[in-house]
Amino acid sequence: MTGFLGPHNVPNKGKIPKVTLLFRSRSRCWHGDQISLMVVTENVPDGTAVEITILPKGGGAVIDTVSGLSIKNHLVAHVYKIDWKGKPLPKTGHEFVFKAVIGKLKSDESPSFLVDITPPLLSA
């Protein structure tokens, strides 16, 4: 966005995008671990409500939702504990992502992180 050009006597409309980027502190976790889920924004005022949902990569049932967060100094960093007992976990796949809704703005998927949710196979 470098600016808007427009002639006189005409209503000139312009849009400035709100931007959001998602980051996570780890790329691999175990059940019971903590992971920091971070939302960085541009042109989003402080105090804007943020809701984070965690779901399997590629889609599927939402595993968990975190609400009650808000933007402060262009950032939300939420330390999330992976405690998924009783959550609707996928039957296959260990790769997960999170998404954020910031006001009306919906983010893309975050980079994925692996969670070992399958019981380990031990040799006899």
Partner: peptide, 8 residues
């Protein structure tokens, strides 16, 4: 001259 600016 008039501009109307919003987010996307």
């Amino acid at each position: 001259v008039e501009f109307v600016i919003t987010d996307h």
